[in-house]
Computed example of a mutant assay.
Amino acid sequence: MSRAKVSLQDIAGRLGVSVKTVSGALHGDGSIRMSSDTRQRIRALAEELGYVPNLVARGMRRGVMPIIGIVADGLITQPFATEIMRAFDNSMRADGLSVIVTSTGSGRPVEASIAELQRLMPQAIAYATMYHQVVELPPAARDAVRLMINCRDTEDTIPSLVPAEREAAATITRHLIASGRRRIAFINLPGLLAGELRGAGFRDAHAAAGLAVDESLVRPATRGTYSGQARSLVFEHVAELFGRADRPDAILCGNDRVALEVYGALRRHDLAIPDDVAVASFDNQVEIAARLDPPLTTMALPHRAMGRRAAEILAGHEAPAEAVEEIPFRFVERASV
């Protein structure tokens, strides 16, 4: 018998049982009663014959397919955020589930992306973004989305997974303080939620250590909201900060790209890292952080962990721990502090 053509009817006929009994044994339907011996014989024969379940037919009967849908707000175009999708897809495959991604943005409404996924009868739909943000979903989308990844709903009615930005900033700042640094400049990311939360964590660590934050050392990395198009202010800030008598002894950077600019600016002023000034950052963009001289101490974004955690939730293994679950960064110590 061709292995590709083995059906439930074939197995039932060989063993003299009903198709319903075979389906219950192979598909885990506990409502169909049978002896353990019968279940074992069915499974053994199915394996021997090379039975492959018809997931499409099974999904049609149940009204859902073995699919998880993702509405991606720019996610698949960003090198960091693709780590979410890679970890998520790998975990889903282990559960026999496929991931279908559709994009929104650029004038395409979220409802259209969700409707496109719903035609495929997915088990669940998630909404993911390329950077940490608060998203206002329309009511129809809010009813359809089961989980938000790297973002949260304005009303916090949908379970969300977000990076623990504030705690990450507190951790890296505590490390700078523990290394003996007391005048820490922070060249932060203006206009972004990540920058706002990291600024709060920076202040938390100072308060816990009984230190006052010198607000003159807290500067925006760019003019206007941080983006690849915004004009950088890093060289200007470094020139001003190190042209004064009370210069900083450390610089915390909003991300590794800002740190790359800081390295160049410090070298222009003949300042050595970490002897003259320590430098630390966020992201762990390895092609930057590991290749700088000296290599950069930074906080690694938890995108892979978010992807794996999202897979656990959407595959039904675990429920969200709370309405907004913060996923911790990973501290990566190198030689810049």
Score class of each variant (00 low, 15 high):
Ile251Tyr: 01
Pro294Asp: 00
Glu322Tyr: 00
Val286Lys: 10
Phe186Leu: 15
Thr297Glu: 06
Gly180Trp: 14
Pro109Leu: 05
Ala140His: 10
Leu233Gln: 13
His237Gln: 08
Gln78Trp: 07
Arg330Val: 08
Arg223Tyr: 01
Asp275Ile: 12
Asp270Thr: 03
Leu252Val: 02
Val337Cys: 14
Ile76Phe: 10
Glu165Met: 01
Arg119Val: 03
Pro122Tyr: 09
Ala315His: 04
Gly228Pro: 07
Pro53Leu: 02
Leu193Pro: 05
Ser106Pro: 14
Ser23Lys: 11
Leu252Cys: 08
Glu155Cys: 10
Pro139Val: 04
Asn54Arg: 00
Arg93His: 09
Glu236Met: 02
Gly254Gln: 11
His206Phe: 13
Gly24Tyr: 07
Ala57Val: 11
Thr77Lys: 13
Arg146Thr: 01
Gln285Cys: 08
Gln78Arg: 10
Thr38Lys: 08
Ile68Glu: 00
Ala321Trp: 05
Asp293Arg: 12
Tyr263Asn: 04
Gln285Pro: 00
Ala94Arg: 09
Thr154Tyr: 12
Met85Phe: 13
Pro190Val: 00
Ala94Glu: 09
Leu192Gly: 03
Leu15Ile: 01
Gly63His: 12
Ala164Asn: 14
Asp156Ser: 12
Thr297Cys: 02
Ala245Cys: 14
Val6Thr: 06
Asp214Ile: 00
Ala321Lys: 09
Thr298Cys: 06
Phe282His: 08
Gly63Ile: 13
Leu97Pro: 08
Asp276Ser: 04
Arg3His: 11
Gly24Gln: 02
Val101Glu: 03
Ile100His: 09
Thr102Ile: 06
Gln229Ser: 15
Ser36Ile: 09
Met92Cys: 12
Gly180Val: 11
Gln123His: 10
Asp275Gly: 14
Ala323Leu: 09
Ala25Glu: 07
Ile100Tyr: 10
Gly228Leu: 01
Ala212Glu: 08
Ile84Val: 03
Ile84Leu: 09
Glu83His: 15
Pro122Lys: 13
Met34Val: 01
Gly107Gln: 15
Leu147Cys: 02
Val262Met: 13
Ser36Val: 12
Ala230Tyr: 00
Ser2His: 13
Val17Ala: 10
Arg198Phe: 09
Leu271Asp: 06
Gly13Ile: 00
Arg291Cys: 10
Ala250Gly: 00
Ala178Ser: 11
Leu260His: 06
Gln40Ser: 11
Ser227Leu: 05
Ile251Leu: 06
